[in-house]
């Protein structure tokens, strides 16, 4: 089992062009993601959620602290931590299959084998017949599924999900949440999900982490089991009606809300 760790990580950005002045975006973040966990990070805009993911991905370097996988500091982005982006970031010059096969091409896998494995992954995300389709012919939900299949193609130990469902309509979003949950439980990868939605975080994650802004810091790290309940066949309505779901929902709403009031004061 692998562990992706952020240890006392802080991140400061320069204010405008003045290098001497910096703004603290994240302060003292310590977070360990094991490869059987699903961590959802929630918090209001400006709480540094996406920066946290960019640090884990290696797109950003921490100002202080360490980011490591199994104790080894990361040198930058790597295939062990595949990212799914909010704006899908699929390559429009490649069709759906070649997008999924892209990580395989990077590893020098032969064309025939790439094709087979890409079709396999597309089938896994329910897009059996979409391989030859152009990206712009796919709906938003289909594009995100291609994006998830592409991330899985790089055989990652961790999936980093940067609000992948944020731009979708409510119905598609609900369907993809269940889908994401299943992909995660089948693939045995650790998942780090950035989201705006408390409900999404609760339904998918094994741990919900709450970030507060100015500077971004962890104010809560709460275990959740609703995803496992969903996977074991319990109905969504049943889960949402349960007192423990409502208690956690109120608690998380309160945490984010309290923080908003403090901000306004």
């Amino acid at each position: 089992m692998s562990v992706l760790s952020l240890q006392s990580v802080s991140l400061a950005f320069p204010v405008d062009r003045d290098i001497s002045q910096t703004r603290l975006v994240l302060d003292g973040i310590t977070l360990h993601l094991a490869s059987d966990e699903f961590i959802a990070v929630i918090g209001r805009s400006g709480s540094g959620k996406t920066s946290l993911l960019n640090l884990a991905a290696g797109f950003l370097k921490p100002t202080s602290g360490r980011v490591s996988v199994d104790g080894v500091d990361i040198a930058g982005p790597g295939a062990d931590r595949a990212v799914v982006f909010q704006d899908d970031a699929l390559y429009p010059w490649l069709n759906a299959r070649d997008n999924v096969a892209f990580p395989l091409k990077l590893r020098g896998i032969a064309k025939g084998e790439r094709r087979l494995r890409a079709d396999d992954l597309l089938a896994k995300v329910g897009l059996d017949n979409a391989g030859a389709k152009n990206i712009w012919e796919l709906s938003g939900g289909m594009r995100q599924r291609v994006g998830i299949a592409r991330a899985l193609a790089s055989d990652p130990r961790f999936l980093l999900l940067d609000e992948p469902l944020g731009a979708l309509d409510a119905l598609t979003r609900a369907r993809l949440q269940q889908f994401l949950l299943k992909v995660w439980s089948d693939s045995k990868t650790g998942a780090l999900l950035i989201t705006h939605s408390i409900e999404e975080a609760m339904l998918l994650a094994t741990r919900v982490v709450v970030l507060a802004p100015n500077p971004g810091r962890i104010v809560a790290d709460i275990p959740a089991s609703f995803g496992r309940q969903l996977l074991s066949g319990k109905s969504l309505q049943e889960i949402k009606d349960s007192p423990e779901y409502r208690r956690l929902h109120d608690g998380l709403t309160g945490l984010i809300h309290a923080d908003a009031q403090e901000d306004a004061a």
Partner: peptide, 8 residues
């Protein structure tokens, strides 16, 4: 960034 995160 996507390509880099797939190890390019």
């Amino acid at each position: 960034n996507a390509a880099r995160s797939f190890g390019a």
